[in-house]
Write a protein that binds this DNA or RNA. Structure first.
Lengths: 236, 236
DNA sequence: AAAGTTAACTTGTATATACATGTTTATAAG
DNA sequence: CTTATAAACATGTATATACAAGTTAACTTT
């Protein structure tokens, strides 16, 4: 593994375990250079990643200050599977597979997945139950060229785990859009909507390392259980 | 100005003006090194920033592929003032200042701004009108230690412009949270809610370069006019 | 005691080099 | 013509050096 990523993960672990508490400073770049027996540029790569991800603020002349990472605030930005999220938050979560089928792309899917009309597409509809309430409906569509096979077992566990570790797809980046919509008939029948008159919808187009678009997803949330947390930097 | 940022901005401009269309490749790092008469590391800094911001995908052995940047999709992630957003989207926008006052912090503000009870805080309430409809209510609170003075004129134009260019505050990063709430009485009276029974609320804590917290903001949106667009990378 | 100056230390930028690793193209062998 | 090999080229990582610029603390001067 790469040195700078190893150091990055080590420092993340240390910050999360409160070894460097909030508003204290990390060792200086020169000190870290000695601690990890490496060059300053390698340390700087790790520190810049920490700053990018909201763990530290680098201040010229002073050092790297640890900033408050609310450990229970889970960043829903980024690309994170439901299983990863549930595991990391220790949620009592459960997945119900409502539908698993190969369909032909209609005009809408055609544009969302950038394929031809009537191309084959995997459609997966899953309800996510948290503390016994069905509050999220995930509708996934996969270009069958990249995902030839899918089973109910995979969908009940983790599709991303299968894609990355079995199929060895390199999932790289996504464009996301969050909007509020009226619940569809499907939402009403598959979710415990409790009378809420809106759903929050996260629409994602997910790309592989070679920039090919392989997945379109709509994640439909009951509004009272929806929470999106983000870290942002002012652009220079 | 720094070379790598100059090159970054130049390449952003070129991509946005379609000089390098989507799914074509930028010149190689070595070619860019010659074009800009600089070192490869400097070029790589600029390219890594482009990748981070979703303009290109770097592929080892191949090159830097331009990825589709929907120019009309404005990223609401990041820290962007309403005026900057309206200008860049060429929106017919207008700001109405409903309230401008110095108040004493109550318990809630105390925790949101990390100050003492009864410390002085600027409170600004502004409705944002787009195409003649009041669809966003921005409630800003500023720690008076950092913002001693505010006028109605500043609030009608751009507070951020004033903070950065007049007061020379270095706005650096923010933690954001998006939730859906029931409209308050204030929302109902100051917005054109048109019967919508929810508002989307973006709560932000904004920090300066030296990690001091100086602003808390609630941006309250009518759900049909709310749209959040984001670019995300899968973490390694 | 207060103010100014310097020295040491911090992060930021730019450059250069070497090698690793993945991709493509041209060439040679069968 | 097909396959295998090698060369050229692409990005990725690690290291080293030099200097710029902001911060802090010690020291000197007044």
């Amino acid at each position: 593994m790469q040195k700078y990523l190893t150091i990055y993960h080590e420092l993340v672990r240390q910050i999360q375990s409160n070894q460097w508490p909030e508003s204290t400073k990390l060792p200086s770049e020169n000190e870290l250079t000695e601690i990890y027996a490496t060059s300053r540029e390698t340390i700087r790569k790790a520190l810049n990643q920490l700053a990018q991800d909201g763990y530290i603020q680098k201040i010229r002349g002073k050092g790297s200050v640890v900033i408050d990472t609310n450990k229970f605030d889970f960043p829903v930005s980024g690309i994170v599977s439901f299983k990863e999220l549930a595991t990391s938050l220790q949620l009592p979560a459960n997945t119900i597979v409502n539908e698993l089928a190969i369909i032909e792309a209609d005009q809408e899917l055609q544009s969302k997945l950038n394929i031809n009309l009537r191309d084959s597409v995997w459609k997966v509809v899953r309800a996510r139950e948290i503390s016994g309430e069905k509050v999220i409906l995930d509708k996934d569509y996969f270009n069958k060229d990249f995902v030839p096979e899918l089973t109910r077992e995979i969908c009940e566990d983790s599709i991303y785990d299968y894609l990355e570790n079995q199929l060895e797809l390199k999932i790289s980046f996504a464009r996301k859009e969050i909007v509020v919509e009226e619940p569809s008939e499907e939402d009403r029948s598959l979710l415990d909507l409790e009378g809420y008159s809106n759903v929050v919808v996260i629409k994602s187009m997910v790309y592989l390392e070679d920039t090919s678009l392989f997945q379109y997803t709509e994640s439909r949330h009951r509004p009272d259980k929806f929470r999106f947390v983000d870290f942002a930097r002012r652009v220079k």
